[in-house]
């Protein structure tokens, strides 16, 4: 019982980080796969609508493992949120909560997303569309242009001491800093 109670609490960084780090050797040893998730978007393009584009002509069939991995992530997330749910409200820095309340974000019943914005009910709201559609376009375009995301560059690339991955990670952080401090406040006040 105590086990379940403590497992349902949010896991600290020193538990989560090392497990994520172990994904690198796990994928290498189990299947000689380099950890990376954003390439899955490319494989979808290559398999479904290559449209004669050079960038989508490659043996995507060899990369189908990443889709299995992603289905696993979705199932894992479902298990954790359905059966290991933290009964308490997410603990956040009060400064952030204070700032978000200025934009009307006050509902923390969903720990993962500001549910007042991220809901199908506001599918025609400009805020939701910017946060999902524009955000998604930037994630898709940016990760391919940079040749990797947080997993491929920041975890896998840094683990392999690949210096371009350090440059990529620095610019991921810079982009995020600019967006969180200057762009998002503007979007949320729309």
């Amino acid at each position: 019982m105590n086990m379940i109670v403590s497992i349902s609490q949010p896991w600290p960084w020193y538990v989560a980080g090392p497990i994520i780090g172990l994904t690198v050797p796990a994928l290498l040893i189990l299947g000689n796969k380099n950890f990376g998730i954003s390439s899955s978007f490319r494989h979808v393009c290559a398999s479904c609508f290559p449209n004669g584009i050079e960038f989508f002509k490659y043996e995507w069939q060899k990369e189908r493992w990443v889709w299995i991995f992603i289905v696993g992530i979705i199932i894992g997330a479902w298990i954790a949120s359905a059966y290991l749910q933290n009964p308490n409200e997410i603990v956040l820095n009060p400064t952030l909560k204070n700032e978000l309340s200025q934009y009307g974000i006050t509902d923390y019943s969903n720990a993962y997303l500001p549910i007042q914005i991220f809901t199908w009910h506001s599918v025609f709201s400009i805020k939701l569309l910017i946060l999902t559609v524009i955000g998604g376009l930037l994630v898709g375009f940016g990760t391919r242009y940079a040749d990797g995301c947080t997993s491929g560059h920041s975890i896998m690339g840094l683990s392999a001491l690949n210096w371009p991955s350090l440059v990529a990670t620095i610019f991921f952080m810079l982009g995020g800093l600019v967006a969180a401090n200057f762009i998002i406040p503007y979007i949320l006040s729309l």
């Binding site: 998730i37 954003s38 899955s40 978007f41 997303l113 910017i130 946060l131 999902t132 524009i134 955000g135 998604g136 376009l137 930037l138 994630v139 898709g140 375009f141 940016g142 990760t143 391919r144 242009y145 940079a146 040749d147 995301c149 947080t150 997993s151 560059h153 440059v167 990529a168 990670t169 620095i170 610019f171 991921f172 952080m173 810079l174 982009g175 995020g176 800093l177 600019v178 967006a179 969180a180 762009i183 998002i184 979007i187």
Partner: peptide, 16 residues
């Protein structure tokens, strides 16, 4: 690309 992805990461609140 890294910078653009960083913006997307913050906006969507999630990497891939």
């Amino acid at each position: 690309g890294g910078f653009l992805f960083g913006i997307g990461w913050a906006i969507t609140g999630a990497c891939p």
